[in-house]
């Protein structure tokens, strides 16, 4: 990133609702942010902290309260919508309800900033559309109508439209909302690839912390107070920003494993010995049940595998019990006599 010009750069940007009126409500700021080519940036933060407002403001849909936004070195305020449309493309949470619109027509609307007054597509437009279809894997449902698509398909089509718009920056507002887990992973992987292969900058807001930590080049972490911490995912974990932003009742971020704990550990301690997948999932199950898994515990569980069969040995310090399923082990641990 040395001395490379930022695609988007904000200086002392303050965002909020109703700028310029008496109803002004400042949400966050001052923000000094930069976005470079080839970066995938994930904007994280709790509901209602202003993620959408930030995205809408930097994309020019909404006025800033104060401060400056530079798009490829030019002031965003001085740019016409037509100029911005060649720099930023959007995937919004807005529902596209037009049931008669087929997928191909929708994707080709991405060429709007380039096509002539009647919107007739030339060869360059068609090449860009074909590329977008190819990149998003939407070729299978080009002839379908928008209202016949699943949420995941719909999101891919909207992304294809944004890619067809061929802009150095793509902004997506919660693209993973309403998607099932495989679709979410697929979409995040696609965005990651796209940023790497095409050198586009991609800015998304999301609630997928696990995925964001895996794919993001940068994380912008917003909290409810309007503060924004920007940095590498790992940096934000190490400096405690993550813990601060997401620690709530019943939820804690474990910097050691990079995961969230949603259960308070009980006092009872257990140790698990054994190797491989079986031991890993046994630990998971015990943590879910509320046990603290530590090597120093008095009660020990040994997981072994022999001839394709798994069995669990429980040493309570006095008794030794053997189980051949995980559920019978957990069931036995629940019995008051054993604890």
């Amino acid at each position: 990133m040395e001395k490379q010009q930022a695609i988007l750069h904000t200086t002392a940007l303050t965002i909020g609702y109703h700028p310029g009126t008496s109803h002004l409500k400042v949400i966050a700021g001052p923000l000094n942010l930069s976005l470079y080519a080839g970066q995938l940036i994930c904007l994280l933060g709790p509901n209602g902290c202003g993620k959408s407002t930030l995205l809408r403001t930097v994309s020019g849909l909404q006025k800033a309260v104060s401060g400056n936004i530079q798009l490829e070195g030019k002031d965003l305020k001085g740019l016409k919508p037509a100029d911005i449309a060649r720099q930023i493309s959007l995937v919004l949470t807005d529902n596209v309800r037009s049931g008669n619109l087929d997928v191909y027509s929708l994707i080709s609307l991405g060429r709007y900033p380039y096509s002539g007054w009647l919107g007739i597509l030339n060869q360059t437009d068609k090449t860009a559309i074909d590329y977008a279809i190819d990149a998003t894997g939407t070729a299978a449902f080009l002839n379908r109508k928008m209202d016949s698509l699943s949420d995941g398909e719909c999101q891919k089509v909207m992304l294809a439209r944004a890619i067809a718009q061929d802009t150095p920056l793509i902004i997506l507002d919660e693209p993973t909302a309403h998607l099932d887990l495989p679709s979410r992973i697929q979409l995040m992987r696609l965005l990651h690839q796209l940023a790497k292969e095409t050198g586009k900058a991609i800015l998304i807001s999301t609630h997928e912390l696990d995925l964001a930590l895996q794919v993001a080049d940068q994380i912008w972490l917003m909290d409810s107070g309007g503060h924004l911490a920007a940095g590498l995912p790992e940096e934000l974990i190490l400096d405690g920003s993550f813990q601060q932003a997401f620690d709530k009742d019943g939820l804690s971020f474990d910097a050691a494993t990079g995961t969230f704990h949603i259960h308070h550990p009980r006092k009872e301690e257990l140790s698990v010995t054994g190797e491989g997948t079986a031991a890993f999932w046994t630990r998971k199950a015990l943590i879910r049940k509320g046990y603290a898994v530590t090597p120093a515990a008095v009660r020990r569980i040994t997981v072994s595998e022999e001839g394709g069969l798994m069995f669990w040995l429980l040493d309570t310090g006095g008794d030794k019990l053997s189980f051949n399923t995980l559920s019978s082990l957990l069931h036995a641990l629940d019995q008051p006599g054993i604890t």
């Binding site: 020019g60 849909l61 959007l90 807005d94 596209v96 027509s105 991405g110």
Partner: peptide, 23 residues
């Protein structure tokens, strides 16, 4: 007829229309 391109863009709603360069 001359606004048919604008009308097409408006099918996606005001926000998308604006993001595609429509005033």
């Amino acid at each position: 007829f001359f606004s048919s391109k604008l009308l097409d863009a408006l099918l996606l709603g005001d926000n998308y229309a604006r993001s595609m360069g429509l005033t």
